[in-house]
Write a protein that binds this DNA or RNA. Structure first.
Length: 486
RNA sequence: GCCUCCAUUGUCUAGAGGCCUAGGACGCCGCCCUCUCAAGGCGGAAACAUGGGUUCGAAUCCCAUUGGGGGUGCCA
């Protein structure tokens, strides 16, 4: 039988990383098995409607390379794929359950329910719907229906017995019906189905064979199975996924500003790195491999590698993956991606981006850190002369001035201002003068950058700065040192 | 409260009774390379939550405790 998986997000306006991972596993499994990956939008909560939210879902999935075979935009044999557009389809199914005794009309108002909820809470109990409306006679029901009294349709859950189902990652799950079941609402007062109901109906109608979703549904699954059984439908395979956590106690949340796919992309993380890392939080291939392309993930993915314990999303490790992916970029690609970030700090300068990109590529972990790393090329920071002191390089406050004026003399004579010529002029000159490279180049680099660490050494920086600016900064350094030594 | 899931270094994890004096990766520390910082190379510190069983033998199986997650909505 063909495997059919689905990703069924509700359009909130953002793609949570946990959602991205759920989508990924569904996608991976479908592709691995040569099956179909279906996208379904679950927008049954009209109050939460967000304009343009479905586009966020489409764009994210596409950017990640997770192409769906059936969905709202591409269509398919089981459409429509947006639940609000399927609205009229659910009521007949609910009525079928009423006829078979598995569901019933409920006319209790939200206010009444809330009051009973509060009362139960005051007694230290947890409220569970008491089947109040199940006791209504047929005539009473009909009268209210005729009077257009608002109603919901509830599931008539069993109060005794137990339910067992098999989960592909957690194994056999058994619950007492008294614990796991309640008369949950199937059809809301506004005529919309609840998630619980639409989910079951749609998964069946769409021929979903494997339901892969967050483990928050682990304990409500018996209720869904009750529905499948009531309809006489085949129960799908369940694959419950652990939660992606921020730390031991908290899951990734919007509050921290690091829960959404877009948060990471705007910070300069590469989609490929994010996907690669995300796949590994909660799943492992069974060996020590860590780097995977999407195709390699498809190849390696297996449900048996899914974990039962929650994983903490480690930004540190993600950053490592990102840095590695950046290093593997073709130089032109790196330049293309880095240029906008260079612009942020260097707009208005004539810095050679191509050369800068070469120097920066191995030093870039996240693009958002790039501007601060290159800003010194535009504006020399107001640095402390202590930076000139470096024992290992034999540079001191006393030796630096002479080194700098030496550099000035040599650099003034450099015929062509390109890196090779600068290098081939300076280095031999240092040797001829009987000086040590470090003792000259260390103070030079400090004078040119005002920084303890820089992308590239003194010669590279001199080249990027241009002759004029280089000589100007040397002069500035000399002044600073004269002042400090006075 | 009740139900339920989970538990190997700071983090992600390997481990499915003897292969474990517990392996890999990130991070951290040190060394090398070097005009700085990265990158790269080499090395180091760092874990089986606790207590009971079962067994010749337990990180691996069972139970309890502790800790954490999730559920308990006309949200999904």
């Amino acid at each position: 039988m063909e495997v059919r998986t689905r990703f069924a997000p509700s359009p909130t306006g953002f793609m949570h990383l946990g959602g991205v991972r759920t989508a990924l596993y569904n996608f991976l499994y479908a592709r691995k098995m040569g099956g179909k990956f279906i996208l379904r939008i679950e927008d049954t909560d009209q109050e939460r409607f967000v304009e343009g939210a479905t586009d966020v879902i489409y764009d994210t999935l596409k950017a990640c390379g997770m192409n769906w075979d059936e969905g709202p935009d591409v269509g398919g044999p089981c459409g429509p794929y947006i639940q609000s557009e399927r609205k009229d389809l659910y009521l007949p199914y609910a009525k079928q359950l009423i006829r078979s005794g598995h569901a019933y009309y409920c006319f209790c108002t939200k206010e009444e329910l809330e009051a009973r909820h509060e009362a139960a809470k005051a007694r230290g109990e947890v409220f569970k719907y008491d089947k109040h409306c199940l006791r209504l006679t047929q005539a009473e029901i009909q009268r209210r229906l005729d009077e257009k009294v608002p109603y919901v349709i509830r599931m008539n859950a069993p109060e005794t017995g137990e339910s067992t189902y098999h989960d592909l990652v957690f194994g056999d799950m058994t619950f007492q019906n008294s614990d796991a079941m309640d008369d949950m609402v199937l059809i809301k007062a506004d005529g919309m189905p609840t998630y619980n109901f639409a989910n079951v109906v749609d998964d069946h109608l769409m021929g979903i064979t494997h339901v892969m979703r967050g483990m928050e549904y682990l304990s409500s699954t018996p209720k869904y199975n009750f529905l499948y059984n009531a309809f006489g439908w085949e129960i799908p395979q369940y694959v419950h996924l652990t939660t992606v956590m921020r730390d031991e106690k908290h899951k990734l949340s919007k509050r921290d500003g690091d829960a959404y796919y877009s948060d990471f992309i705007s910070k300069g993380y590469l989609t490929e790195a994010l996907i690669n890392y995300l796949a590994l939080v909660g799943w492992n291939p069974g060996d020590n491999r860590e780097f995977f392309t999407l195709d390699e993930l498809i190849e390696a993915f297996d449900i048996s590698g899914l974990h039962t314990s929650p994983g903490i999303f480690d930004v540190n490790k993600l950053t490592y993956f990102n840095a590695e992916y950046i290093r593997r970029l073709a130089p032109e690609k790196y330049l293309e991606l880095a240029a906008p970030w260079f612009d942020q700090a260097l707009a208005g300068t004539r810095v050679d981006y191509r050369r800068l990109a070469e120097l920066m590529q191995a030093r870039t972990e996240i693009f958002s850190r790039v501007p601060d790393m290159v800003r010194f090329l535009k504006d020399l920071p107001d640095y402390d002369t202590e930076l000139y002191v470096n024992k290992k390089q034999k540079s001191s406050l006393e030796s630096a001035p002479e080194a700098l004026s030496f550099c000035r003399d040599v650099l003034e004579r450099v015929p062509d201002w390109n890196e090779t010529v600068i290098h081939d002029t300076l280095i031999p000159a240092i040797a001829e003068a009987g000086k040590k490279n470090g003792a000259v180049l260390w103070p030079l680099r400090i004078a040119l950058s005002g920084l303890l660490s820089t992308p590239g050494g003194a010669i590279e920086i001199a080249y990027l700065l241009g002759r004029e600016e280089t000589l100007r900064r040397i002069g500035l350094g000399l002044d600073k040192l004269a002042h400090a030594n006075a």
